[in-house]
Design a protein around this nucleic acid. Structure first.
Lengths: 217, 217
DNA sequence: TAGATTGTTAATCGATTAACAATC
DNA sequence: TAGATTGTTAATCGATTAACAATC
């Protein structure tokens, strides 16, 4: 059936809009007042108020003219959008400093993320505790993924082994990879990858910093 | 002097281009061959080859028709752009799990980042070691910033105290903030903020995952 | 030379902004 | 009601893509 373009179902958000919606989410969580205006949101994020209003039109939500947006119900709408009230079980592969920090990260609670296991093949780490979790061998991956219905796998291993781990995770049924390793992963179609290489993100900072006009002496 | 629009000096890159250039940087670091084509870069990143070529025109670099881009010299150009060969000293505030993981992160070496100090005001942490660094009290901030010419301050404290720490860092002379706390910071003009709230970045993953067509049963 | 690949210009597309209408 | 703020439409701007010229 051609000429059938607009179908019901998941609305696609412009990527930039989605990024801003995440920032609104953070901002609203901090907000103490009952209502907030597009002007105030914009000011705090250094963007334009019409941008904020436009972004919000993508949501199934309306503000009140003359009053602003009702903070808690806009937050509910965003929680719905991101699924933060639905808990997703995730696993972490790699019990190095970063893997351990993530396993212990308490910020996940508010976001519907629960770390159910951490894996490592280093015999010295196997069986040790990371918070309340015991470090498990990779052989247990499949079992844990099935048992906890895990869709998201977090990669915290060195770059050299990241692709191998990605392949393994996918083979064991993972649908999305949260990649903290400093490499570009190749994955089959349909598998999501979210890159989170921490050093790479510092590049933006370094780039902008170096270009800031030099101070007068 | 009006009508003077195009001035020499730092070229401004479109934000999206800059993001991709970071990915090219990562990709080229892994590349074993001497040359790489725009087609291959595009394939690995799931983008279009003309996008890659266009992005590269922003750089002071030319490829070779019929051959491709010379990997090591393109990498040099990108290193120059991001300043990865120039070491920036950074400090970390907050010696929790994440702060400690960052202090120990060995991926920074390749990116021209050196962690010179970690701070915390919790008396139980003061004086303890994080890798080779001793946890220092916030009172030492100014001294360390001056001594090591620190421009980048990393915030790894809980959301509640993040704004206070940001204010303090700026007062002590920091020019850029790398913010791992789950809040939006307000800073004076001229101060850079790079947000890196880890849980927030999981929102994208959750959002997309929830919208993936449900599997047939 | 022919062929492959880069580089560039023009066309298209999409996102942002401006202007203003709607609304409480 | 008047005024403030949202919501929407149209204009602008910028980024992506397509087409093709340049080049080795």
């Amino acid at each position: 059936m051609p000429a059938e373009k607009k179908h019901k179902g998941p609305i696609m958000f412009p990527k930039a809009t989605l990024e801003r919606l995440k920032l609104y989410h953070t901002l609203l969580q901090e907000e103490k007042n009952e209502y907030i205006s597009s002007d105030e949101i914009a000011r705090k994020l250094s963007i334009k108020p019409e941008q904020v209003r436009k972004d919000i039109t993508y949501l199934d939500y309306s503000g009140k003219p003359k009053v602003g947006y009702h903070v808690s119900s806009l937050l509910d709408t965003l929680d719905e959008l991101f699924g933060t009230k639905v808990t997703d079980n995730i696993i972490i592969v790699g019990a190095g400093h970063l893997g351990k920090a993530l396993a212990n990260y308490d910020g996940f609670e508010n976001y519907g993320i629960s770390v159910v296991a951490i894996f490592d093949n280093n015999p010295e780490k196997l069986g040790t505790y990371v918070g309340e979790l015991v470090v498990l061998p990779l052989d247990d991956l499949g079992r844990v993924i099935r048992r906890f219905n895990v869709k998201i796998g977090t990669i915290c291993v060195p770059g050299e082994s990241a692709q191998k781990i990605a392949d393994l995770l996918i083979k064991k049924g993972i649908k999305a990879i949260w990649n903290f390793a400093p490499v570009i992963l190749e994955v089959p179609e349909g598998i999501l990858v979210e890159n989170e290489d921490i050093a790479r993100s510092a590049l933006t900072l370094k780039h902008l910093l170096d270009r800031t006009p030099t101070e007068k002496i």
